[in-house]
Design a protein around this nucleic acid. Structure first.
Lengths: 242, 242
DNA sequence: TGTACATCAGTGAACGCGCGTTCACTGATGTAC
DNA sequence: TGTACATCAGTGAACGCGCGTTCACTGATGTAC
């Protein structure tokens, strides 16, 4: 944390210099600590080392600050997903898997963003800016799904990319919310959320007719990885099948 | 609402008669209205038409009231899932689908329970009673998965039921949390959450080697429905596949 | 380079409010005899 | 059937607290000339 929230007035002078940023960071810390519910405007000001009236220069009210956090969360989320997708390299299926893992990583590492974005009760649909940011993030999943759909093996019907994208989104979100979250409400699981999600996605893709043994289909074979993790279902943590 | 929360003191006398129940109902209403965050002990007392000190006869504090709600939510959830599963009648796959729909129905019709159970930040794992209730509810999904796993077609490997159950749970939870919730944070979708989830589950089951055209496999054919909804992916709301 | 002035970003005191919690109390109910 | 008493479930007043918000203010910064 380098947003000088520890610096008192004596040290920093009358003007803070970067209060808006400091307030966002403070709120983020508070949300991570006590949940999106238990963060207050006054508390954020206090953490930023500033009088309780100061935040009003930068945010109309608590809700606007919360929206800003969600906004920024979606932006970072989008960046993370973009990086994970890496335009489908080295091959579509494994890049797709990486997107799922990035979803989980975000939920775990940024519980404050995650809860502001998905669990704070903010009606995303009614804030155009926020909705646009949310849709840009989802757009990465959708783009990945398009590419994957294009790989459908000759015999099989080409699945609608929008549907695939929504399915993948809901799987990732379900696993992240129940088992992968970074706060106290995480449920215990006999394996890692990553393994759970990976198996789920691979089974799903197999259901659509995609080969999922990680030796990619012809069209996509140009720069495949030499070998990947074992095929599903993985042995071990799943308990003893009877 | 028949918990006489409207009756004033003059009418009901000194003793309320069923305050504990009335408080639970009041809290439920408040949570549905303002989210799990914005409900207060005092408010619940007011809605129950009782002094702010009265709730302390029944709940240690706000958190205990919230836990009680989550507890009851898991119980109702379990009952609903049990009923939907109906011990696998008329055939395992369609009963399984019904469980998914029940999950969505619960999220939509009981947003207050849903958010107390899953989004209130209550650490379920650290409250034994609550965890037991949560596990009983999950047990229904797990039992259904066991039965389904037993139906695996001869050629295919029998999938671990625990894994299937967790996958189905996360799919249902993801769809419900993102698109099927009963409050303002619901995201818009070009089709019904039910259709989205149904397609998702069917594709998944197909990926495990189950026949999913709704003409059940031999073992399970005893009392099959004559015909069901069309196979996935359904036409129409998915947009035009290119 | 210096000065006057407008603008900006913060102060700090004050307010009303509702919350959680406590306390001694009291009215109603149930039970022993 | 009646009475005495214990127990229970609620009252209402009071408290300290922190919050959100406002206000006139002031110190710092930037800019025109």
């Amino acid at each position: 944390m380098s947003w000088r929230k520890e610096r008192g007035r004596a040290e920093r002078g009358y003007h803070h210099g970067n209060l808006k940023e400091a307030l966002l960071q403070a709120a983020l810390g508070l949300i991570a600590e006590k949940g999106a519910a238990g963060f207050t405007f006054a508390d954020a000001a206090r953490m930023a080392g500033v009088s309780p009236a100061a935040p009003y220069r930068h945010f109309r009210d608590r809700d606007e600050l919360l929206s800003s956090i969600a906004q920024r969360g979606f932006e970072q989320f989008e960046a993370l997903l973009t990086q994970a997708w890496d335009d489908g390299r080295p091959d579509t299926v494994s890049a797709f898997e990486r997107v799922g893992k990035a979803y989980l990583a975000f939920a775990r590492n940024e519980p404050a963003f995650y809860s502001a974005m998905f669990e704070s009760g903010l009606p995303v649909d009614s804030n155009p800016t926020l909705m646009a940011a949310s849709e840009r993030a989802f757009g990465i999943i959708r783009a990945a799904a398009e590419r994957l759909a294009a790989l459908a093996p000759p015999g099989t019907p080409r699945p609608p990319a929008m549907m695939m994208a929504l399915h993948i989104w809901s799987m990732s979100h379900g696993v992240a919310s129940l088992f992968g979250r970074g706060d106290a409400a995480r449920r215990k699981l006999p394996m890692s959320p990553e393994d759970l999600l990976e198996a789920e996605v691979l089974i799903y893709l197999r259901g659509l007719g995609f080969p999922t043994d990680r030796r990619p289909a012809a069209k996509d074979a140009a720069n495949a990885k030499p070998s990947g993790p074992p095929p599903v279902p993985p042995a071990g943590p799943w308990g003893t099948p009877k």
